[in-house]
């Protein structure tokens, strides 16, 4: 048996547009890829590229027109496959009339949990996603970030071996986004396979082991992230505390070589996200000191 968590083999998905047989659109075209157990795999591509369709087929919400998708060796339509999957949709869709705790209870019961075991599991997950305080509030009153967190908690309720995340940080503030990213890394640490779909490339870059780039239903590039993004013929160095004299010496050295040139020089920039986080942290510390 292979070590694959997800095995997509020549999968094609066609949607008919009208009554005529010739009136159809190919959403995914002969797609093949594998996700190894324990890795974080990112499928990236613009909207309408076929990411969501691929994910829905993996979840058994759709059947492939051709080819196959297997999850831990089970056909994706098989209930046993879904038993291994925790799914966080882009916009968590839950009953708004249920409270956070009731939502987890509902999902837990669907996965076969009952009694004390379910109660403990709910408490554990509410603590994990920091929603203990809002457990008794109806989801109708939750913010987008809170919904995303309760969505994550329900995805993990049955201790799945594979977690599928659809645009997990879409519409979430940078702090929430960072928390989700940390959680993905934690999942990976614990040996859980993560299949991530996103069009936010930076986010994928930070957490994924391997990445597939999908466009117009076809896989364009696939491989380990480091390999995909590295520019082999260029090298970058970052100095700290280097005086102008030292930098001038380095420049002279490079210019002395006939086939080497300086492509770019300047101060490294922090990301807006990191700036936001450091600012909000220092603000918090300031308040605590007061």
């Amino acid at each position: 048996m292979s070590n694959c968590a997800v095995e997509v083999k020549n999968m094609t998905k066609v949607f008919s547009k009208g009554l005529k047989k010739s009136d159809y659109v190919v959403a995914v075209d002969n797609l093949s890829f594998e996700i190894e157990t324990g890795e974080v795999y990112g499928l990236i591509g613009p909207n309408g590229s076929g990411k969501s369709t691929t994910m829905k087929v993996a979840l058994g919400l759709m059947a492939p027109s051709r080819g196959s998708v297997k999850v831990f060796g089970f056909d994706s339509g098989d209930i046993r496959a879904r038993n291994e999957i925790g799914f966080l949709p882009e916009n968590p869709y839950f009953y708004k009339h249920l409270t956070g705790a009731e939502t987890l209870k509902f999902c837990g019961k669907l996965c076969g949990f009952r009694g004390g075991e379910l109660k403990d599991r709910i408490a554990e997950l509410l603590e994990l996603v920091e929603l203990e305080g809002a457990a008794k509030r109806r989801l109708g009153g939750y913010s987008k970030g809170m919904l995303q967190r309760i969505g994550l908690a329900q995805a993990l309720i049955q201790r799945p071996r594979l977690v599928i995340l659809d645009e997990p940080t879409a519409g979430v503030d940078p702090l929430g986004s960072r928390q989700i990213r940390d959680l993905i890394l934690k999942l990976k640490e614990d040996g859980i396979t993560v299949f991530l779909c996103s069009h936010l490339l930076e986010q994928v870059q930070e957490v994924c082991d391997r990445v597939g780039i999908i466009f117009e239903g076809r896989m364009r590039r696939e491989g380990p992230l480091a390999e995909l993004i590295q520019i082999n013929e260029q090298t970058s160095m970052t100095f700290a505390g280097a005086k102008p004299q030292l930098l001038a010496k380095v420049r002279d050295l490079i210019e002395a070589e006939s086939d080497a040139t300086i492509v770019e020089e300047g101060h490294p920039k922090t990301t807006l996200e990191r700036l936001f986080i450091s600012l909000s942290k220092s603000e918090k510390e300031e308040e605590e000191r007061k």
Binding site: I79, R80, R82, N83, E84, C111, G112, F113, E124, L125, E127, L128, V129, E130, L156, Q158, R159, P160, R161, Q179, D182, L183, K186, L187, D190, G191, I192
Partner: peptide
């Protein structure tokens, strides 16, 4: 996000019955 015990992620999904 608080530190949580590793058991939260421990893969241990229950066997599933056909109906």
């Amino acid at each position: 996000m608080s530190q949580s015990p590793p058991s939260v992620f421990e893969p241990a999904s229950k066997p599933v019955s056909p109906f």
